[in-house]
Design a protein around this nucleic acid. Structure first.
Length: 227
DNA sequence: CACGCCACCTGTGAGC
DNA sequence: TGCTCACAGGTGGCGT
């Protein structure tokens, strides 16, 4: 079992690869022999030892498919994916090259899986806070010294989130079923009106953390610290 | 090509 | 209590 971006890849003896994406609410749940299907179980993989692996996904935003393994690289859903932010190749210079000439906001650029993979709405907000960059900045307008802060900020927030077992707002669970704990470490996400870490503002006056909508998605940021 | 927007779903919590 | 509404971690596809 391996991973590319937010896809889970399971190499099968048949020469095919099972391609899974959990979307917003998907889970793989292992259960014992003859366990009845639960609500929102869409696929059951039944093993010779009696174990069932159920693909459970209430919102059905997830994906499950079989692809011939030798065709994986050219497969539509994987072909255009960008660089892994925790790979050695993800340097500030690389990020700068990806953002160069981009007219869209830096927030939208971070969510664009064709540039950098794996960054979702929470971690885009949190990385921009750590880099002290406004989510509204044009991606192409970032100066080299700003990108030198952003690339490490992305790596740091992802590593910290992995360390904490991910962010359980509602559905998310670690592979072993445990809750994640990174939601307790959010600096800005889902904290509208509150203080950001290290804040010495008069929050009654400044309003604290702001929430705006970009590309139809919530963005949380500190207008004082993020420029 | 680049970008913004919408649809795809169900569940939940807030407000009334 | 129960109704309606807004909103939620993602992303493919379409219109501009």
């Amino acid at each position: 079992v391996s991973r590319r971006a937010k896809y889970i890849l399971v190499a099968l003896d048949s020469g095919q690869t099972l391609l899974l994406h959990l979307g917003m609410s998907g889970r793989i749940i292992l259960s014992h022999e003859n366990t009845p299907l639960q609500k929102h179980d869409h696929i059951s993989l039944d093993f010779d030892n009696g174990i069932h692996a159920r693909f459970n996904d209430p919102r059905r935003f997830g994906y499950c498919g079989l692809v011939p393994t030798e065709k994986l690289g050219g497969y539509k859903l994987l072909r255009a994916l960008g660089i892994e932010p925790l790979s050695p190749g993800f340097t500030s210079a690389k990020l700068a090259a990806l953002l160069k000439g981009k007219n869209t906001s830096i927030k939208a650029a971070l969510l664009d899986q064709r540039l950098v993979v794996g960054i979702g709405n929470i971690y885009a907000c949190e990385a921009l806070f750590r880099a002290r960059l406004s989510p509204k900045r044009r991606a192409g307008s970032l100066k080299p010294e700003e990108i030198k802060k952003l690339a490490p900020a992305i790596r740091a927030v992802l590593n910290a989130a992995i360390e904490a077992g991910g962010s359980s707002l509602r559905d998310y669970r670690q592979a072993d079923g445990e809750l994640g704990y990174f939601q307790h470490h959010f600096a800005v996400y889902d904290r509208e009106g509150q203080r950001c870490p290290g804040c010495d503002c008069n929050v009654k006056k400044t309003g604290g953390i702001k929430r705006i909508t970009q590309q139809g998605r919530s963005t949380f940021y500190c207008p004082v610290k993020q420029k």
